[in-house]
Design a protein around this nucleic acid. Structure first.
Lengths: 191, 191
DNA sequence: ATACATAGTTGTACCAAGTACATGTTCGGT
DNA sequence: ACCGAACATGTACTTGGTACAACTATGTAT
């Protein structure tokens, strides 16, 4: 792991600069009330540069912190080999949520203030569950069933997430997730 | 049911005019390659009028045909009173899909050509499942469990929908839906 | 028939997001 | 010290979406 050159470091720096400025402004006045021009002015960077780093305004909120993907991949890799898929999913989703709790709260709060962010939110979710699907697919033969499992897990998590109020402590969210995942795993046919 | 006045009829007429022009152009050249200006020119109507009728470009594809909501409400109302929620959901989702098969295909095809439509698609879904949730909530006491049921059903349907290729006959889609809903209902805990 | 309120339409002018591109700067290796 | 590549910038443009004041057609009461 050699030190990255000046170029790389500067790049990362401007990236952070832009992101920091944007999040600060969003925090102060809300997502919609802040224009890209204001962001780049605050970050001391040109408009074009902004679009060099982020494909759009939402991306500044939802783009992957470069480390985050490593994290969840590590969680997945840590699951024991014979474990049933559903249990692995439950465990990973809970751990991951717990570990990134702070960001979960921030994003949720921002989303509540402005529906334009729902799209970025969805994209992010899709990327995440896409990886989950790939991982799960490698564990089993039945592709449809596997996809279904991941999607149902996602639906369970979403149900918990929507019910949770973002001023409640994170433990409440985790409990809701546990409950929803357990019920989904147990099946819903019988009333 | 009295005949609506000239005003109403003209309104509906322009609505259809815009929609028809738009869909024709979209069909010829794809969603993204057609601008609103072209649509209004083709429809013989002003830009402003377009936005009087549709809140945005996607809406022209996904906005509710005024009759459609009635349809699904009728389906829900037709379910016998004691029926378990999960069975009702399964039945309604299958019937509704079967009944609107043609539009399902068109929309899916358009969505495949341009991802910008995914958002409108999602909105539409949300409205639909929102109503489903309300209906289901009226049948039971446990709000969380009910929401979870609807969301899981939605996830099952989506799984089927995504797997389905839109050049396959609709029966394939229906079979996939049946399979996914059945599995979700049976539970996924055991591997 | 006439006159009036109002729903619906139009044109204009505007803002913000996003793209294209040609022109500078700055870094990395030689 | 130099040169190519990567990165940044400014300019100009397209397009989606909003605001608003002025105009026109429709419904209705007289």
């Amino acid at each position: 792991m050699t030190t990255p050159g000046l170029r790389e470091r500067k790049k990362l720096a401007t990236w952070r600069e832009i992101r920091a400025a944007a999040l600060r402004l969003f925090g102060e006045r809300g997502f919609d009330a802040v224009s890209i021009d204001e962001i780049v002015a605050a970050a001391g960077v040109s408009r074009t540069t902004f679009f060099n780093y982020f494909p759009g305004k939402e991306a500044v909120v939802f783009d992957p912190d470069p480390e985050e993907p490593e994290q969840w991949r590590a969680l997945l890799a840590a699951r024991p080999d014979g474990e049933p898929v559903w249990e692995s999913l439950t465990a990973v989703l809970l751990e991951y949520t717990e570990r990134t709790a702070d960001r979960v709260i921030v994003r949720r709060r921002l989303r509540d203030t402005s529906p334009a962010l729902a799209q970025g939110m969805a994209d992010r979710r899709d990327r995440f569950y896409g990886e989950l699907r790939e991982w799960a697919a490698a564990r089993t033969g039945d592709a449809l069933r596997t996809t279904l499992q991941v999607n149902l897990a996602a639906a369970a998590v979403m149900t918990a997430y929507e019910r949770w109020q973002c001023d409640e402590p994170v433990e409440v969210l985790l409990d809701l997730m546990r409950a929803c995942l357990a019920q989904a795993g147990a099946g819903l046919r019988e009333d």
